[in-house]
């Protein structure tokens, strides 16, 4: 806002340290949208008294940048963001303080000091596990086979800019029926529940797990099942061998590639 035109340039201390954070949203917090998480994080930063830096200008914003965020309703153990701090901090201390200040269900899983390059350049794919209550393993296997055999599978999705048609086959690197779990993971009684392993390349517009399921339903003529429950297990760069490289690996100074199954 206007005012006695203050000199904003000198108002805010500069960024002296950049920290990269892997965080998760789980349980009921999976229903948070990205904006909901962002507000919760900003408040947690204040409560935890983390010396976040602010942008210059008349309405300063905390220096937080996000890598692609999991959609509303989807769990994740591998979300990433970067914080700009105005004072140097020990990454593990920030991890502990921030985790304690966030509502239960949002979890800080790792904090590392940022090295060279940007976070976005280290992420091009996601690994998912998807539970589909109402879908038997046998039907799932048939559907997955047809899905993988197709070259293109077009589905429609309602976006803010209207109905869009996406090819959901192209970006899928891997889709398979996972080994059966001991109990129905979703806890919907009396229903079978297939579990799918999914690796998707991040393209624009994003192909999400529920788009893939729409495609699956279309190729195999499946009934509409209960809402599936997807969890992102990992994000990173896909190697030629089909492995995902943990985006914080380089920052930790360790050359270590996370296994596909994470």
């Amino acid at each position: 806002m206007g005012g006695k035109r203050r000199q904003p340039a000198s108002d805010q201390p500069p960024v002296v340290q950049r920290l990269r954070v892997r965080y998760g949203k789980r349980g009921r917090m999976r229903f948070a949208s990205h904006r909901d998480f962002a507000r919760a994080l900003e408040r947690a930063i204040v409560r935890a008294a983390i010396p976040i830096a602010y942008s210059q200008g008349f309405s300063p914003h905390p220096k937080i940048s996000y890598a692609s965020a999991a959609p509303t309703g989807v769990s994740s153990l591998a979300e990433y963001l970067e914080l700009g701090l105005r004072e140097r901090m020990v990454p593990s201390q920030v991890a502990r303080a921030l985790d304690a200040a966030l509502p239960v269900g949002f979890e800080v899983l790792e904090v590392a000091e940022a090295g060279q390059g940007s976070l976005a350049d280290r992420i091009d794919s996601s690994v998912w596990t998807v539970e589909v209550p109402g879908l038997s393993e046998r039907l799932a296997a048939v559907a997955v086979e047809r899905f993988c055999a197709a070259e293109r599978i077009c589905v429609e999705r309602m976006t803010k800019r209207g109905l869009r048609v996406l090819d959901v086959r192209g970006p899928v690197v891997r889709l398979a029926v996972s080994a059966p779990a001991d109990a129905a993971p979703y806890g919907v009684e009396g229903l079978p529940c297939a579990i799918l392993d999914l690796v998707v390349r991040q393209v624009t517009p994003t192909v999400r797990p529920d788009d893939v399921l729409t495609g699956l339903r279309a190729v195999a003529d499946l009934e509409v099942f209960e809402a599936p429950r997807a969890t992102r297990l990992a994000q990173g760069m896909l190697t030629a061998e089909g492995e995902i490289v943990d985006p914080l690996a380089a920052d930790r100074g360790m050359a270590c590639a996370g296994a596909l199954s994470a």
Binding site: R28, M29, F31, S33, D36, T72, G73, P103, V188
Partner: peptide, 18 residues
């Protein structure tokens, strides 16, 4: 929980606030 995937702004119903 089974209904929340089908409604707008589901986060408003889950509680768990600070």
């Amino acid at each position: 929980e089974r209904l929340l995937p089908y409604v707008s702004k589901p986060i408003q119903y889950v509680g768990g606030e600070i």
